[in-house]
Design a protein around this nucleic acid. Structure first.
Lengths: 233, 233
DNA sequence: AACCCATTACATACGACTTATTCAAGAGGC
DNA sequence: GCCTCTTGAATAAGTCGTATGTAATGGGTT
């Protein structure tokens, strides 16, 4: 475990956040600030700043006389990209991937519909380019390149929706796609049907076909969920 | 501006967060920790903890030698309930309400469909009770009571979906409904059609009619969006 | 059983030291 | 003479140790 040295604060925060998000600290467990200071060999000041951040994520609760208690999962700020990263790195990655994919299946079709209405010419061009990139990397074990284009594609769609709440889910989608690619069996090339759907989605957005874009995105989502069912029981 | 005394940290954080979220601090503006310490008459320690929290929300970026710079809106963690509260309290509440309502229109139909499949008997009962409460308070300027039941209703649906990402949007929905009720013209009683839709949605969930639940929720969302269009140009 | 007090662990504060970044001045090359 | 690269000083955040305040808990007393 080599410290990236990128700040004591960052190191302590990452370590603690990971442990809590992974469920290694049972809810209700109390941490003592000076214990943590000892454990990480940093001052209590640093620990307190870390605790404050974890508190703002609703991962822990700090109360006088009792210490820092780990909060139950249901209270966490699960939309915080940092929390998502920690959870995806932890033990229940499968469950996490599933709930995030369900979230995507709700958001992205609507976002695609809006994108079909609002996308600029540049965004349409970017979308087509991404789709072409996906096609070009869809065979021959070029999963990393495929992933890059896939992420860019969905990011453009979310951005083009014109809704900032959707746009800000780009990072989440990127994490999901990356997690899926890196964690599951990577022997096979991506599903050809999915590639086709992306190409057609780019077309639908370019033509301003909102219903078509929504329907195609739903199909992509269904495929992703199905893939999860097959590969992760 | 009387301090709630509920911790220096909380006061400084709320004040700064509100100012930034309201757009009073232009992106790129640099704050100095010493200045802030002076301004709020607290120690640098407190300021630094606040800055760390704001940093974790991606509202600001702290760099050595340069200071604490306010980040552009696109980089904020807009799903953080705290950030949402700050923004709803600020100047661009209308835009914020709209984008959150669009988000709801994407999430809640899917959540309702899942709820129809997964809801427990208790959740179905709670749903019916909420719907009844909405009916009972739908006339005679009882908007506060109506709001309470409305919030509870949607929270149960999101919880019953069984997806934690949906469930955690309960707070967001609560903020949106409350913001809508408290900010807009409150002379009129709620739309009778909306009340009916909620009652029928409770029925659909109880009967396990996923498609019906999804369709009814979409209708509710369309109504809410239409209401926004009419009342907020 | 109700009240009070001592203990405990976080909350706040302050000051000194460290480190990274930036800006500018100066040396060197073209 | 102008541009570039290097070097060093200034600056502001980062880190740390310590001291004091404060609220909640738990036990002891009446």
């Amino acid at each position: 475990m080599t410290t990236p040295a990128q700040g004591l604060h960052t190191h302590v925060l990452d370590t603690l956040g990971l442990e809590i998000a992974a469920g290694e600290c049972a809810p209700g467990l109390v941490l003592r600030t000076d214990e943590l200071a000892q454990r990480f060999d940093v001052s209590r000041t640093v620990v307190r700043e870390v605790i404050r951040v974890l508190e703002s994520m609703h991962l822990v609760e700090s109360r006088r006389r009792v210490g820092v208690t780990v909060r139950p999962t249901e209270e966490w700020n699960v939309y915080d990209p940092q929390v998502i990263r920690w959870r995806l790195a932890g033990a229940d990655r499968p469950r996490q991937l599933r709930s995030l994919t369900v979230l995507r299946s709700a958001i992205e079709p609507v976002a695609a519909g809006l994108a079909a209405r609002n996308a600029t010419a540049e965004q349409c061009a970017a979308l087509t380019e991404c789709a072409l990139g996906m096609v070009a990397t869809s065979r021959g074990q070029q999963l990393e390149g495929y992933l890059r284009h896939d992420i860019a594609f969905h990011r453009v769609v979310l951005d083009a929706s014109g809704n900032e709440m959707f746009a800000r889910l780009g990072d989440v989608v990127a994490e999901v796609l990356a997690g899926r690619t890196h964690h599951q069996v990577m022997f096979e090339d991506p599903d050809p049907a999915a590639v086709t759907l992306h190409v057609r989605l780019a077309e639908a957005v370019r033509e301003g076909d909102a219903e078509g874009a929504e329907r195609l995105t739903k199909e992509i989502a269904v495929g992703a969920l199905h893939e999860l069912d097959v590969l992760a029981p």
